[in-house]
Amino acid sequence: MTTSDQLSPGSREWLLAFADDEHMIGSRHAAWIGLGPFLEEDLAFCSIAQDELGHAIRLYEFITDEVDRFALLREPAEYRSAWLTELPCDHWDQALTRHWLYDQAEQLRWGALSRSSDDGLQALVARAEREEAFHRQHAELFLSRIAAGGEEGRARIRSALEFLLPYAVAIWEPVAGESEALSDGLITTGSDSLAQQWEDSIKTSLEGWDLSTSWPQPISGQDNRHARTPEFPALLASLQEVITIDSAAIW
């Protein structure tokens, strides 16, 4: 397994961005426990959250030996999460739409790692892809049914898409040193190509659901994932609640 001192800065940055995305989206999904529109949906969002947090842990392990402290106790500027994953999305239509947009992208990111020069990463990809199939099925089952339903649901999804798409497109902003991650063989596909595949698949689904929308420019200001959303400090503070009371607590 790769250890942090063997990773080039570019490869580290690529893994860090992915790990932080998984951490933040997992944390945001987990907030639906007890608040989902019905019991099974509470459980579904939280099951998905558990997987994403599990993926974050496994990815952090390639970067650090102290996963908990690294995951929770960095300065905000040291995180590399995409803004899409940091947003609260405290309406279920938004949370569901983000879950779909994100997991379509996540599938492609695992794919980019699937022929990685690192055996440990390849093994992780095999596990993650099995889990992600359930996530995509969940998102698509709901979106396709809402799309085929009444005008209120369709309007909500359309408005969630309009709000979220500029953030989702920005997930593909290449991390600093992506070319190094490619030349290391850590990944075998660059963000340009992944972004195109993602856009094609999103557009095809939206067309099928008669929810096509004008394609936006990425939200500006993410600064290669160095800048945080205004909502991030509160999210990080809530994640730190346990470790600041008991630094030996297990995450």
């Binding site: 558990q50 997987d51 993926h55 993650a128 297990i250």
Partner: peptide, 11 residues
């Protein structure tokens, strides 16, 4: 090997 990566019973 874990059943799922996010299984909280691993520890």
């Amino acid at each position: 090997i874990p059943t799922f990566s996010g299984c909280p019973a691993l520890q």
